[in-house]
């Protein structure tokens, strides 16, 4: 019995880690932003206030996964009346489709850090593959709460019409840039 435990300990120490670290997304420090063109005049921006999900990371094996759920009712642009319009059937139709999700299918590493995350983005029950380009990533102990934390910034671009959200296209831009800032706390 003792020999078995020693063998496991040796195996763990030689591979770095056997199991991936699991994290819960911290809704207080995770925010998906979006921006799109308005009538050719300017770029308008907004974000979602309620985000949840989980991720796992195994740096040694260079594997990982991430699942993010976004509450479409929490869309905000800093102007309440416009937010009501964004929640209406013209755009997110939040009463019928209260959430949108991203589920990773492949995480690509560059060295010890994540370079990109491929996955499926589902908006209004339409699922399309997208690739998140990770622009920054860091894992470590949060100096405030002392919890192990991983965070990353990522960007991608989608065409909203491909998800059935084509109201106002092309006057209200079809191309939507997404900037994702996520922090997750180790379970």
């Amino acid at each position: 019995m003792r020999k078995t435990l020693v063998a496991i300990a040796v195996a763990v120490s030689s591979t770095g880690t056997v199991w991936a670290d699991n994290y819960d997304i911290d809704p207080a420090h995770s925010m998906p932003y979006f921006s799109l063109n308005h009538l050719g005049f300017s770029t308008q921006r907004g974000h979602f206030e309620k985000v949840s999900g989980k991720m796992s990371l195994d740096v040694a094996k260079k594997t990982g996964s991430v699942e993010i759920t976004i509450d479409t009712n929490s869309v905000t642009t800093g102007f309440g009346k416009r937010d009501e319009h964004l929640r209406s059937p013209d755009f997110f139709n939040a009463a019928e489709y209260p959430t949108m999700t991203f589920k990773s299918t492949k995480v690509t590493f560059k060295g010890d850090t994540v370079a990109s995350v491929e996955g499926n983005l589902t908006i209004m029950s339409t699922t399309k593959p997208v690739t998140l380009t990770v622009t920054a990533m860091n894992c470590g102990k949060n100096p405030m709460n002392k919890k192990d934390t991983c965070g990353f910034d990522a960007t991608t671009q989608i065409k909203r019409s491909e998800y059935g959200m084509n109201y106002g296209v092309p006057n209200i831009g079809d191309d939507v840039a997404i900037q994702l800032s996520v922090e997750a706390i180790k379970q």
């Binding site: 059937p89 139709n93 998800y163």
Partner: peptide, 10 residues
């Protein structure tokens, strides 16, 4: 248009 791929209520 004729896009009915995403069959929303509308």
């Amino acid at each position: 248009g004729v896009d009915f791929r995403t069959l929303t209520a509308m």
